[in-house]
Simulated assay, not measured.
Amino acid sequence: MKDKVTFITGSAKRLGAHTAKHLHSLGSNIVIHFDKSKAEAEALSQQLNTIRPNSTALVQGSLSDITAVESIGRQAINAFGRLDVLINNASSFYPTPIGTISAEDWFSLVGSNMQGPLFLSQYCANTLALNNGVIINMVDIHAAKPLKNHTLYCMAKSALVTMTQSLAIELAPKIRVNGIAPGAILWPEAELNPDDKQQILEQIPVQRLGHMQDIADAIAFLIDASYVTGQILAVDGGRSLSSHTKA
């Protein structure tokens, strides 16, 4: 990935930050995107620039604000004057039991998980095509097997799956488009009690959480896999094979 540029949305912390570090270690320059996590994004940028000077750039903005997406994409492209990989990683996640769903929930969950990736991909497509680029969308195993009380989130991720497959056809042959469907890699930021955690682990054939490196490795594979497009790769320890899933 030497001299290539990777733009990762929501990359100030957690999976996004770990993926940024891994792809940076493979030689890519990284455009780090954040909305509210400014301190974390600046710390990550400083860390990576210490390893390789002038190898990162920062872009701020809300992907849930459709009017801001074009500016976010423009800044990402202008940061290094090219773009090879777009990873739509940013995602809001929280329960929305039916009867409680608000317009604010719609803008947050659909905005970050489907609307933002669509319009960002559209804006970046011409630049990605110049370099036989790659789009990778972070989907979810619950796009296929909905999670109770998370209807809106699951709807948005399901739409993102369809978008991944549709764009793989529409943007070929210049751009490949694939998705990663993580299983239980990190516990949600809203802490679960021990019984809930055990219940989730019992649904996973390998009987453990995954690691952030599992996701980073899968992303690196899809970036390199020149004959793979329109696919959703589940990195979930077999959890998507379970007959049911719970929060």
Rank of each mutant, 00 (worst) to 15 (best):
R176F: 14
N132K: 13
A181M: 07
N54F: 15
S240Q: 10
Y153H: 05
I30L: 09
I72V: 13
I180L: 12
L15H: 11
N131S: 14
L23W: 10
N132M: 03
P53I: 08
K157Q: 08
T19I: 15
S102G: 12
K246Q: 13
R176S: 11
S242I: 00
C154P: 09
G99E: 13
V59C: 01
A20S: 15
Q46H: 12
V69H: 04
K145F: 04
S91N: 03
Q213F: 07
V235R: 00
V235K: 00
R239Y: 04
K174M: 11
I136F: 02
W187P: 07
I101D: 08
S121N: 06
H22A: 12
A79H: 03
N29A: 11
T245W: 04
G238K: 01
H22L: 10
N88A: 10
F93P: 06
R14S: 12
R82L: 07
L15E: 03
P53Y: 09
A57N: 10
T164D: 08
Y123T: 11
P146W: 07
P194Q: 05
T96Y: 06
I223E: 01
A12N: 03
Q203C: 13
M155P: 00
K148N: 14
I215G: 00
W106S: 02
T56E: 09
S92W: 05
N54K: 15
Q165S: 06
I98F: 12
P97M: 06
L109G: 09
H211A: 13
I141N: 00
P194G: 03
S158P: 04
L26V: 11
H18C: 03
T127H: 11
K4S: 15
A90D: 04
G61N: 10
Q203W: 02
Q75F: 02
F93G: 02
T56M: 11
C154W: 05
S92Q: 07
L44K: 01
G73S: 10
E189D: 04
N149S: 14
G10S: 12
A234L: 00
S11K: 09
G116M: 07
Q122R: 14
I232W: 00
H24T: 03
H22K: 11
T9W: 01
G27L: 01
M114N: 04
Q213E: 15
N193P: 02
D236V: 00
L130P: 02
Q60Y: 01
I66W: 03
N193W: 01
T127N: 09
L83K: 05
M163G: 01
L58K: 09
N78W: 05
Q46D: 14
T127F: 02
I87L: 15
K2N: 05
Q122G: 06
I204W: 00
R239I: 10
V228W: 01
Q115D: 12
D195R: 14
L63K: 02
Q198T: 15
Q75L: 08
K21M: 14
T67G: 07
T50Y: 06
L58V: 11
L26P: 14
S121K: 03
L58G: 10
N131K: 12
V85R: 02
A79M: 04
K13E: 03
A76L: 11
P173L: 05
L130V: 06
K145L: 11
